[in-house]
Write a protein that binds this DNA or RNA. Structure first.
Lengths: 187, 187
DNA sequence: GAATTAACGTGATATAGGTCACAAATTATA
DNA sequence: TATAATTTGTGACCTATATCACGTTAATTC
C-alpha cells in the first residue's frame, strides 16, 4: 500500500528509502466503509487524504437541497475540502465513500513540518497543486463551451476507469446535467 | 511599482530588502497597449505575468468560434496560460489587454531558480496556487448550482472593482451566459 | 433469498437561456 | 469633431436541458 504513495511522489521527485520513511511517518492510515463520511459540511476539515484503495466523492449541497459532485477520488488521488483544510474553516463540502476505502491522511501542520524537513516535498505539493489548477480550468472551459454530450464523451476519455465504478446519476451530477438527460444521450 | 509585488509577497512571507532585490532580479518589466496580445493560441507561453498596472483577460476560442473568458487580471493579480506555461506546451488560451498594462514577468526556469535560492518563495507560490484552486472550485460549483442572476450577483460581490472597468459583454462571457441574458437581468 | 433500496430508461411538459435582428447610445480614434 | 467602432437594450422566436412521473431492472442487505 505504501508503495502507491511512494510511486506517486517519485513521479515528481526521487526519494531515498530514508526519505520515504520520513514522509510516511507524518501520515496516518484510515479505513472507511462504503457510505461513510470523512468530511461533513459545517465541520472541521483536519486532513487531506491520499487514496490507496477504494473510491470517494466530494459534493456540495446547494440551498435548494440539490447535490453537485465536485470530485471523485480513486486510488492514487488526493481529496479533501480545500477551502476548509487550507484555511482552517469548517467544511462547505461533504466527502463520502462510494466503495470501502483506505487512505493515508495528514494534517496541514504535519504537511508543513514535512516540507520543512524535506524541501523537495514542497516542490511535490506545488506540482500537484499546479496540475490541479490546470484540470480545474479545463473543467470550467468545458462547462462553458461544451454541451452535455460533449462533456460526457470528454469524461469517458479522461477517466475511462471511473465509468464502470460510478453510477450514471453521479457522473451526471459531476458533469452538471440531470440524470435523465445523461440517460437519453445514447439511444 | 515594485512595491505592489513586494506587498503581494509579504502578505504571505516576510522579505528583507536584500531578499526582495533577489526576487526582483529574476523578473522583467513589460509594457503593453490596449488590445495587445501577450499570449496567443498555438504559440509558446514563456512567462507568467504579475500585473502592476492595467487590466487583462485570458480567453478560450471554442471550435465554433465562440469566445469564453477564463480570467480577468488587474493590478496585484497573476496571469498566464497555466497549461502552456507549466507544461511547456503551446497555448490553448489567448491573453490580451483591456487597458494599457504593465507587468512583471518571469520564466518557469527563473522561477525555479528563484525558489532554490530563496526557499520561502516556493512556499509563496504554493500558497498562491492553493488559493487559486479554491477559487476555481468555487467557480465550478457556482456554474453548476446557480442561475445567471445569482452568478452575476456573486461576481459583483467578489469583484466590485471590476464591474466598472469591464464591458458587460465580457462579464457575461466570464459568467457563461449570453450578453443578451445578462442585459435582461436588471430591468 | 426475500425484501429494500438504488439505478436506469423513457414519456410528457415546462422553462431558462440562447440566437438573430435591429436600433440607440456610448466610446475611440483619425 | 466627425467618423467609425464598440457597447448596450430589447423584441421575437427557438432549443437544450430540467422537471415530474412512472415502471423496470439490478444491487444491497438483513
Amino acid at each position: 500500500m505504501e508503495e502507491i504513495l511512494r510511486q506517486q511522489i517519485e513521479k515528481i521527485v526521487p526519494l531515498t528509502d530514508d526519505e520515504f520513511r520520513l514522509v510516511l511517518s507524518h501520515f496516518s492510515v484510515g479505513n472507511y466503509k462504503k457510505h461513510q463520511y470523512i468530511v461533513q459540511q459545517e465541520n472541521p476539515v483536519p486532513y487531506v487524504h491520499f487514496v490507496v484503495k477504494g473510491l470517494l466523492k466530494s459534493f456540495y449541497i446547494d440551498k435548494s437541497g440539490k447535490n453537485h459532485v465536485l470530485q471523485f477520488a480513486m486510488e492514487d488521488w488526493w481529496i479533501t475540502d480545500n477551502q476548509g483544510f487550507y484555511n482552517n474553516q469548517n467544511a462547505t463540502l461533504n466527502i463520502d465513500c462510494l466503495e470501502d476505502a483506505q487512505t493515508y491522511y495528514i494534517t496541514l501542520e504535519d504537511r508543513e513540518k514535512l516540507c520543512n524537513e524535506l524541501q523537495k516535498m514542497e516542490f511535490f505539493f506545488l506540482q500537484k497543486m499546479t496540475a490541479g489548477n490546470i484540470a480545474l480550468q479545463n473543467r470550467i472551459l468545458s462547462l462553458m463551451s461544451k454541451n452535455s454530450e460533449e462533456r460526457y464523451i470528454q469524461f469517458i476519455q479522461l477517466y475511462p476507469d471511473l465509468i464502470h465504478r460510478i453510477p450514471k446519476t453521479l457522473i451526471a451530477s459531476y458533469l452538471g446535467i440531470s440524470r435523465e438527460t445523461l440517460s437519453r444521450l445514447w439511444n
